[in-house]
Design a protein around this nucleic acid. Sequence first.
RNA 1: GGGUCUAUAGCUCAGCUGGUUAGAGCGCUGCAUUCACAUUGCAGAGGCCUCUGGUUCGAAUCCAGAUAGACCCACCA
Length: 757
Amino acid sequence: MLDKRYDHNQTEQEIYQLWLDLGVFSPERQIALLEKHGIKPKNKTFSVLMPPPNANAPLHMGHATYTIQDLMTRYKRMQGFKTVYVPGTDHAGFETQVVYERLLKKQQKSRFDFDRKTLFEDILAFVKENSGVAIQQLKRLGMSADWSRLTFMLDKQVIKTVYDTFKKLHEDGLVYRDFYLVNYSPHHGTTFSNLETEHIEKTTCLYFVNYKVKNSEEVITVATVRPETIFADTAIAVNPQDKRYKKLVDKTVINPLTGKEMPVIADDAVDMEFGTGALKITPGHDFTDYEIGKKHNLEIISIINLEGKLQGTGTEVDGLRVKQAREKTVEILKEKGALARINENYVHNLLVDYKDKLPIEPMLLPNWFVRVDGMAQQTIRAVEENKVKFNKPVWKKEMLRWLKDIRDWPISRQIVFGIRIPVWYNVEETKNVFVTFLDNQGNSHELLLENALTEGFTIEEIREGLQKLIAPTNAKYVIAEELPGDSYLPETDTFDTWFSSGQWPLTTLKYPDGEDFKEFFPTSFMDTMWDILFFWIARMLMFSLYLTEQVPFRQVYIHGMVTDEHGQKMSKSKGNVINPMDFIEKYGADALRMGILVGGNTAAREFSLSEDKVRGYRNFANKIWNMARFILGMVEQSDKSIPNFNEAVREKCTAEDTKILEELAILITDVNNSFKRLRFTDAGNAIYHFMWHRLADEYIEHVKNREDKDVALSVLTYCYNTCLKLLHPFMPFVTEKIWENMPKEKSIPLIIAPWPK
RNA sequence: GGGUCUAUAGCUCAGCUGGUUAGAGCGCUGCAUUCACAUUGCAGAGGCCUCUGGUUCGAAUCCAGAUAGACCCACCA
């Protein structure tokens, strides 16, 4: 009846369709089906939220770890919990816009050719066009998610919740607007949070520049990698302990480029050991200098604009990009004889964005911030009190460390594809806002609103073609979802993606009034990788505690990164990237799932996945397939009167039978204990070993020689069917397919068959 | 600079609160094919458990140090 070899491709499609037809992923339907089969469900729920993959990108191997979530979901579902696995997709604002802009570039266009609204609609259409892929692939992995509950990050109800949260934060005085030195990427045209930046080592020139002391022959030499920012210098700082410079403190020096007088100040932040021990202070373009500048009340000068070009120096460097400006500035310094020397092999840590590793300019820009210390305190308490559990102590520690050191959260992003910050500026009251817009003819303008109005543009025309708006920090505004009146222009910044995804448990379950929220919140199990522990897990905890005073999930499972067979991170440049779909094609989703769940320890920081491993588990699928063939063949031969395993059969058992039954009982206990301890590898390994090396290699061989085949076959079928149940959460497809064909008492689908106790 | 983790077979890793002869998968070697399965079976080789000390009747396991590697956070111009 069954083919000699197990054909995963055909079976997996067929079985997934079977589950969809049953509707069993829906918790309501699950309960109805259980009752139909006369099984009493547990009076408890189990809920898991899927970390939303990017809607417009295909899955990568990291997503194969979603099988951890599906494993728990299936395990609990079989135990009779009312179970829901809620899927969703993310708009991934910044990432998606980057991808889309690359497409535009190929068409010789750029985002500056479109007004906000058009650009947003175009990107959304692009995402929608591609958004089926990720979901199709999740289905191929076997995710038993309730697709009727699918949430997209830009769904109406999500935006509604995000806006409500923003309003509440504002009412509670936790939102503020401030000029602040932020991580600005001239390349991407947006601000980043500290979490979105990193440092890379780079060899550059370290320039030693002389600053003359006023009314004296003396000079102070300063070491810098950024001579172009000398135009914005407002002081020289030395360490108060530094004897070399003691007599120069409070003296005045002359800026070699601008000729401006600036003070020499003393500050502990200066490292005597570094360079010359004297530090030039540029509060407008450096984070340390900004702090020092504020402390000493220094003027803050900004000479780099949003395109990364210099402006306002009154010299030939104006209009040059930072790199060229630096070369030009060095020339000028040389001409003026202010350049002492250059160290050309200086290695320093350059601040870059996480995406393209391009330089970040610290820029003084008005930004929206969320005051987070209160929420952080609340979260620290919840974590310390173990309201939320982590699978390893290290993650709890990491979480607390980050929360205790948290800074206010800049939530503005200057990208279009996201949820717009629902703020409107009354431009009759505040006219000194800076606007970039396309007029009726599609020509671009970049100027002060006042001037635009004088030039004859109407507010409406500007609003329609608006690309970017920068309002001063004291601008009057109202919070509203829709245009509040004719004299208003919208804030053009969008929320940081993590501002909306941080509310994922609330938005997917339809906080505050939805049925799902009442029934399934707090959720039971949250699985993700450690790279977004702060980005996402921390933010979800903070938002949920702030809004509901409850943690959003009771158990956090942090899994490691999937690496190649040598423990190397998969990356395009290394050429070792494996597409999960290739493995599914070749070896089946069941085999890939086993490769992830059992082939390595998912809780380790990294775990390797090799083709050999997955092939091995494909072989295992075939092995259990053939065990079924053997059993079915025997049943057919033996005049079809194999008794179900019961007390009568048990009385006739031989020593071998009793032994295998005892071992099965131990297996069940072990597997349940392993699940309790979230040690999936142990559970899977135990089942694998028992089925292959005990049941197949030994017991089946024994059965072949038995006189009382009825008894032996009854025991064998019982053991085998029990193993199918245990294995189902790991290898759902092949087990369900075999289950359909096995002799058994009840014809309940394996996916909801009662879990062995 | 602050913090964390790892080191066990050729490879990838288990080995949990110390306790017989240190385990698995893959790979390797030899043998077996009208048998449910060659996507198989049987047999086998292969380990100073990184090093040095310490605690202990007993250490892969606990402690200290060394060496090597990985990561997180912060960042010095």
